[in-house]
Structures are given as C-alpha cells and as structure tokens.
C-alpha cells in the first residue's frame, strides 16, 4: 500500500489554528494569549479588512519580538478608528503624527532606540504602518528615504485601494477601472484610468532593502510567517498587505476575506517575498479563476457589468492579471498545497 504521509491537517491547513496541531505550530491568532494589539471597541466599519490586517500583523510582530514593538501610524482609517479621544484600541506604544511622515517618524524612533540602547541592536523594534494613500502617495518620499538609508524599521502598508477615510477617493494604488469618488463611473472611460501602475512592493525591491513581501488577509499563516521573517532582519523592511474595504469596494461585510482570496487566486494581487531585491518565494495560485469572479461582487466595478458588459475593459484587467501570473510565476502547481 502506498504510504500516505500524515502531513498537516487535511481538515485545515489554511485555518487559523487547529486543535490537533502542537501549539507552537499554530498561528499567533489561534492563541488565547495573543496580544490583541488592537483591542475591541475600535470604530472600524463592519468587516473592515484593515482592522483585521493590522491585528494580524502587529500581533505577529509582537510575538516575534516578545512584546517589544513600538508603532508609528499614518493618518487614515486605521488611525481614526483606533484612537478617537477619549479611547484608544492600541495596547502597544503607538504614535500618530501625520499623514505623510510615518516612515520618518519611525526612523526617529529607531534612532532614539539605537542611541538609548547604546548598542547596535536594540531589543525594541519599530513598525510603521499606513494606508495605501499614506504610503504610495503622500508618504512616499519619507518611505523611500527610510528605505535608502536602510533604517531599522518594518513598514507595513495596508492597501485597500483608495483614500477610504476621506470618503473613497482615488490613490495611486487604486486599480484601473475602479470607481471612486474622484474617478466616477461616468463618461467614455468610467472609473479609474489604466495608468502605468505604481506597485510599491516592486519599488521597494528596487531599493534592494533586506526584505519586501506582499500578503493578504486571506492567508493568515503566510502573513504571519512574513512578519516573523521580516523581524529576523535589521534594516528597512516592507510588507504590503491587501486589505479589502467593504465600504470602498462595495462588497458585503462578510466577504472581506473572500475578496482578498479572490484577488490572489485571480492573479490580480501577486503574493511573494523578496530579499535584497530578489524574489525568494511566491504563493502559487491554488484554484485558478478568471478576474471576473473577483470583479463582479464589487460595486466599484458594477459599471463593467451593466446592460452591455464592458468586455474590453474586463479583458484588459485580465491581461494585467495574466501578466502578474507570468511575471511572478504564480501559476498553480501540483503539490504546492
């Protein structure tokens, strides 16, 4: 009889935990002792992917550093919903300064830690975090400076594809054809333009910083592994997490994780990690799907599926996904799962 290795649990390789796993192999989120770095009572919308992504990432960082994390946070939903006076949801030392300076604030904290510690390797680690707007647009200068100097900061971008906190306007991370308040679904080319794109992970890689990774809230284990890996490096690190926004995307609050999964499975959002500018691993597609499956449930793309479907636009988006699949080698492989 052929021997079947009892690998991980057929009932839940992709789940948060599993009663059958030895505790050390479970995700941080499975533990009753997880930090809940961002606590209950925050004012994020129902089903907010950013609230979830932030807890996933910061809890993982806390775990990796034994609770020694200081965070700097850009203006945006995450900041607004977590710290309206008189309550904060954060259970870690946390500072919000401005919209566009988070990477620099983090650099300052790291510098302070270094000089205070009087050693080259302070125990406390610094995480900077912001939305896609705060990262790819207004905070880009400070971020690039932080990368270039290789400051000892892990920067995490929660990409929900737009300026959500101000009411869903377009950012440079807003995908083509998506409707936002500043790229309305009107006129001959409704929704956002098909620009040149500004995929920040690739730009981060061009800085050849020690570690760059992408992740989604649909794959907790992968996300946690990346935060853990990031914490093994000193210097500038960048993790770009796709966090669906029910409000901005026009999706059901219960579909947040599903949407992230679809983004990855369709090739719309490549999930990979790179060290010193070179790709080290990619998360292959498990069950290939056409981009339409991803687009259709989102109201921001509703104009593509009207009486006369925008076949060409959809094909254009499919071509972009196909390009990702080629470029990053995302095609489904046997034995990967």
């Amino acid at each position: 009889m052929s021997f079947q290795p009892v690998k991980f649990y057929q009932t839940g390789t992709f789940t948060v935990g599993n009663r059958l796993l030895p505790p050390e192999e479970r995700s941080v989120q499975a533990s009753t002792k997880r930090f809940n770095s961002i606590n209950s009572g925050h004012r994020a919308c129902q089903g907010c992917g950013e609230a979830l992504g932030a807890r996933y990432a910061i809890d993982a960082a806390m775990e990796a550093t034994d609770g020694q994390v200081i965070a700097a946070n850009a203006t945006g939903c995450l900041e607004v919903f977590s710290t309206p006076y008189p309550e904060t949801s954060w259970q870690i030392p946390w500072i919000h300064s401005l919209f566009g300076n988070t990477a620099a604030v983090a650099t300052g904290i790291a510098a302070a830690l270094k000089v205070k510690g009087l050693t080259q390797t302070p125990r406390t680690r610094v995480v900077a975090q912001g939305g896609d707007g705060g990262t790819t647009d207004i905070g880009f200068g400070c971020l690039s400076g932080m990368f270039e100097r290789n400051d000892d900061v892990l920067y995490i971008c929660y990409d929900n594809g737009g300026y959500m906190n101000t009411g869903v306007q377009r950012s440079s991370a807003t995908p083509p054809a998506a409707r936002t308040a500043t790229t309305m679904a009107v006129g001959p080319a409704p929704g956002n333009v098909f620009g040149q794109g500004k995929f920040l992970p690739a730009i981060a890689m061009a800085h050849e910083i020690p570690y760059v990774a992408t992740a989604t809230v649909a794959d907790l284990r992968d996300l946690e592994a990346k935060v853990r890996r990031a914490m093994e490096f000193r210097g500038a690190r960048y993790i770009h997490i796709l966090v669906p926004c029910p409000l901005g995307w026009g999706t059901a609050s219960h579909d947040t994780i599903k949407m992230a999964r679809l983004a990855k499975e369709t090739g719309i959002f490549p999930v990979f990690e790179a060290e010193h500018g070179e790709i080290k691993s990619v998360l292959a597609i498990r069950r290939p799907l056409p981009v339409e499956d991803y687009l259709r449930p989102q109201k921001r793309y509703a104009h593509l599926f009207g009486k006369t479907p925008a076949v060409e636009t959809i094909a254009h988006i499919q071509a972009l996904a196909d390009k990702n699949i080629r470029k990053y080698g995302l095609q489904a492989r046997k034995g990967d799962h």
Partner: peptide, 23 residues
C-alpha cells in the same frame, strides 16, 4: 545619531519620532 534625511518634512518628522521615543 545624525540622520541625513530626504527633506525638512522628514527632518522634523524624524525629530518627532526620536523625541517621542525619549531622545
């Protein structure tokens, strides 16, 4: 720590961070 920042905006921001961290 002497940090050659990429702008004055960053200069003040780095100072904000370092000051808040007690330096």
């Amino acid at each position: 720590e002497f940090i050659n920042v990429e702008s004055e905006f960053a200069a003040m921001s780095v100072a904000i961070g370092s000051s808040a961290a007690g330096a």
